[in-house]
């Protein structure tokens, strides 16, 4: 694995008409780390990830993956695995069928589908329609799609959403095992306590960047929690209303 930052974001800004969703955000994700992108709902997390992946065009600034914009990165689809809020499976498909479609697009053998199904624990439900999956099963399915090409970098948008306590514990262990294999993981979340136990570094967004660095520096002692530090950086709901 090279020393090039897995993800590099420089002065990233996105405006939708009069509304600025993301403003002048700069951060890096180093290889082999689990990085939590934190923020309230509407803080600009998903918008930032969509710009990183080339789905959305920045108003200004740049976002690169392994040193290049996603669209210009050779073999990007195999090097970057993605699970995004708002990207649903193909309509009307079973879990296996959906995975087969994306495996074909990646030029992977059908056996790879069975491997990722096994990895996320969905083998027994693979032939059921995804429409009938629970939220947790859908999250696992999305992870399976992201893992198809055995990518170096995983970009996961709110992977813990809708998971029950067992699912969250499974996800935490699973992400750690992926990082131990040398992968880089950038995950967005608003579940602070969950992220605190999972990530190495954090990036805190509230339209603008509020913090970027190791979680150990943000939450140094046993007397402080990530939640307290988060609200110090982004303000509480009451403060937001006063500001408004």
């Amino acid at each position: 694995m090279s020393d090039t930052a897995a993800v590099s974001v420089r002065g990233l800004t996105k405006r939708f008409g009069e509304v600025t969703a993301v403003e002048d955000v700069t951060f890096e994700v180093r290889p082999g780390r689990i990085v939590g992108l934190l923020g309230r709902n509407g803080a600009g997390k998903t918008t930032s990830l969509r710009m990183l992946l080339g789905l959305s065009r920045p108003s200004s600034g740049t976002a690169t993956v392994f040193g290049r914009p996603y669209a210009d990165l050779p073999d990007a689809a195999r090097r970057v695995g993605v699970s995004m809020d708002g990207i649903a499976p193909m309509p009307g498909t079973s879990g296996r069928r959906d995975l087969r479609i994306w495996a074909r697009m990646l030029g992977l053998p059908a056996t790879r589908v069975d491997e990722v199904l096994d990895k996320v624990g969905l083998t027994g439900s693979a032939d059921r329609k995804i429409k009938g999956y629970s939220t947790g099963m859908r999250q696992r399915h999305a992870l399976a799609v992201a893992l198809l090409a055995d990518p170096e970098l995983l970009v996961l948008d709110e992977p813990a959403n809708g998971l029950d306590p067992d699912g969250i514990r499974w996800l935490r262990t699973f992400l750690r095992s992926l990082a131990d294999e040398g992968r880089t993981i950038l995950l967005s979340s608003h579940l602070l306590s969950e992220v605190e136990q999972t990530v190495d570094d954090v990036v805190i967004l509230q339209r603008t960047l509020r913090y970027s660095g190791p979680i150990s520096e943000l939450v140094p002692g046993s007397g402080t929690s990530l939640e307290e530090r988060f609200f110090e950086l982004v303000g509480t709901e009451a403060e937001r209303h006063v500001d408004a």
């Binding site: 969509r50 995004m84 990207i87």
Partner: peptide
């Protein structure tokens, strides 16, 4: 258009190369 309705179009764009 069904891919736009479900958001699957984003995955298609991400995985297809261009």
């Amino acid at each position: 258009s069904r891919e736009y309705n479900t958001g699957a179009i984003s995955r298609s764009v991400l995985l297809c190369g261009s």
